[in-house]
Structure formats: C-alpha cells, structure tokens
Design a binder for these strands. Structure first.
Lengths: 105, 105
DNA sequence: TTGTTATTTGGTCATTTAACCAAGCATTTA
DNA sequence: TAAATGCTTGGTTAAATGACCAAATAACAA
C-alpha cells in the first residue's frame, strides 16, 4: 500500500469512527432534516453541555458536519447529506444480527 | 426516545465503530471480492497475528463479517455486502475535507 | 503419537476516549 | 456597563481500545 492509499483509508475510517458513537450518530440523524443549533440537540441528550459540544467537534473534525455562528447560537448541519443514506444497509446488518441472536437464545 | 430506539441506534453505532479502524476497514474492503482466509489478509498487514485475529472478531461481533472454518484455515466473508457501497459517500466527505484543508494551507 | 501450521485467547501495558466540572468567550439583553 | 445566555475549552478521571507476547486449541502431516 502506498502512503496515499494509507492516508485515504485512515481518513475514511475516521469518518466511520466519528459516526460510531450513539450520541454522535443520533445527532447526525437529527441533522438530516436541516440544521439545528446546539441547544436544540441538547434538549434531548442527557449529558453535560460540554460533552455535547465535544461530540459535535468530533463530527466537525471528521468532516461530517459544519457549523455557523448566528447571534448567540451555533448552527450545525450535515456537510455531505448522503452520509445517512447508508443507514438502510447498517440496519440490514443489525437486523441480521438480531435474528441470529434470537435463534441462539 | 424509547428503549428500543436507543438499542437500535447503539447497534448501528456499533457497526460504524467496528468499521472505524483503518485495519478493519481495509479488511472489510478486501472481502468485497469474496472470502479470504486470515492468512491471506495477514499477508499485507504489518501486525501481530493475534492483533489481526482480534480485529476480525470485532467485525464479527458487529455483524459485518461471518467466518467458517475449513480444514486448518478460517475463512471470513462479508455478511451484508452493501456495507461497502457506502464508501463512495464517505469518500466524498474526505474529498471535501481535503479541499478545504488545501484552501487553508 | 509427535510435530507443525493456522488461528484464537489471555495477560499486560500505553494510549485514547468520553464523561464531568469549572472556567473562558462571545453576543445579546437589561 | 453589567448580567445573562449559548457554547467551547481545559483539566481530571475512569473505562475502553489496540498493540504485543506467550500460551492454548484444532486440524492435518509425519
């Protein structure tokens, strides 16, 4: 593998990793219907504000979202909306898993 | 959020997290063209065999791959091949990121 | 049966992650 | 200008992760 190929795979993995946390994935899904300010997201998350802010910064770092300050508030939106189109397949994965476990139990 | 919704988002995040490591993502991509035994994957990965084996078990746990022992070898394959269709979008994300950084630098 | 090959498992350790709290910084409101 | 609001940053800490080594297991070969 060349250095470039390695860098690409690392960047891709980083995007997946950013979405690989329940709170962050939930946030990204909320942004599917348009931008939201931090306070709107925070309303439904049971965690410290600083924790929420840090999760958003992980998503931003990875390139999943972008932010814009307007007045007192900061608005976040998806940068590349297709990122959530994937979820139908991810759901197929977990459905298969669930069925399998059901058989085992 | 109901307990079920929470469980679903956790399971989905778990799949993304499993793919969110360069080595594991690379492995999953290798399996796109059909099953491979551990030794075939290991050939190109500069890590201990035990490390490779553990990465595969993370992918298996998450439901991304399945394994089958045949003779002395264990073969792994994608369980739900669509899991990699996504990558075109992930690539769009990292391309956007790269362009942005290029502008900054 | 003994050895060899292919892979997994258990243990250890350094690093990273994610949570909280406290403090900091803009922006707006009083 | 002072106080309040909305969010981020820095510090701390416990838990999770990922790497390696050594040992275990399983299947085949000698």
């Amino acid at each position: 593998m060349t250095g470039k190929q390695k860098a690409i795979i690392e960047a891709k993995a980083n995007v997946l990793k950013a979405l690989g946390h329940p709170t962050r994935l939930w946030m990204a899904e909320q942004l599917e219907n348009g931008e939201k300010c931090v306070c709107e997201l925070a309303e439904f998350i049971d965690a410290d504000f600083s924790t929420i802010s840090k999760h958003l910064s992980v998503l931003k770092q990875a390139g999943v979202v972008m932010d814009e300050k307007r007045g007192k508030q900061v608005y976040y939106k998806l940068k590349v909306p297709c990122i959530l189109k994937y979820m139908s397949c991810v759901e197929a994965v977990i459905r298969a898993q669930a069925e399998e476990r059901a058989v085992i139990l």
